[in-house]
Simulated scan of single mutants.
Amino acid sequence: MHTVELGLDTFGDITIGEDGQRVSDAQTIRDIVDQAVLADQVGLSFFGVGEHHRHEFAVSSPELVLAAAAARTEQIHLGTAVTVLSSDDPVRVYERFATLDALSHGRAEVILGRGSFIESFPLFGYDLSDYEVLFEEKLDLFSQLMAEKPVTWQGTTRASLTDADVFPKTESGLTAWVGVGGSPESVVRTARYGYGLMLAIIGGSAERFRPYVDLYHRSLDSFGRDRMPVGVHSPGHIADTDAQAWEELYPAMEANRNAIGAERGWPPYSRLQFQHDVGPEGAIYAGSPETVARKIAATVATLGADRFDLKYANGTLSHGKMLRSIELYGTKVLPLVHDLLASA
Rank of each mutant, 00 (worst) to 15 (best):
W246V: 00
E247P: 00
M253K: 07
R264L: 15
S222H: 08
S222L: 05
A252T: 05
W246L: 11
A259S: 09
A239H: 00
R227G: 13
Q244T: 14
A259W: 10
S234L: 03
D226H: 11
W266N: 13
E248Y: 07
M253F: 05
R225D: 08
S234K: 02
M253H: 07
M253A: 14
D242F: 08
A252Y: 03
D226W: 00
G261V: 06
V230C: 04
N258S: 03
D240K: 10
G261T: 06
V232W: 01
P251E: 04
P229R: 04
E247L: 07
A243G: 13
P235C: 10
M228I: 11
G224H: 09
E247A: 15
F223G: 04
Q244E: 15
E263D: 12
D242T: 07
A262Q: 11
R225H: 13
M228C: 12
A259M: 00
G261P: 06
G261E: 04
G224R: 02
R264S: 11
G224C: 05
S222N: 10
F223C: 03
A245E: 07
T241E: 12
A252P: 04
R264V: 06
G231F: 01
Q244A: 14
V232E: 01
M228F: 11
N256W: 09
N258H: 03
W266S: 10
R257V: 13
R257E: 13
R264H: 07
A262L: 09
L249S: 06
E254T: 13
E254A: 15
S234W: 02
S234Y: 01
E263M: 15
R225L: 12
G231T: 03
S222G: 00
V230E: 02
A255M: 08
N258F: 01
V232I: 15
Y250S: 02
P235K: 04
A255R: 11
A252K: 01
E254N: 11
L249T: 05
A243S: 14
D242L: 09
G231M: 04
S234E: 02
M228E: 09
P251N: 06
T241D: 04
S222V: 00
R257Q: 13
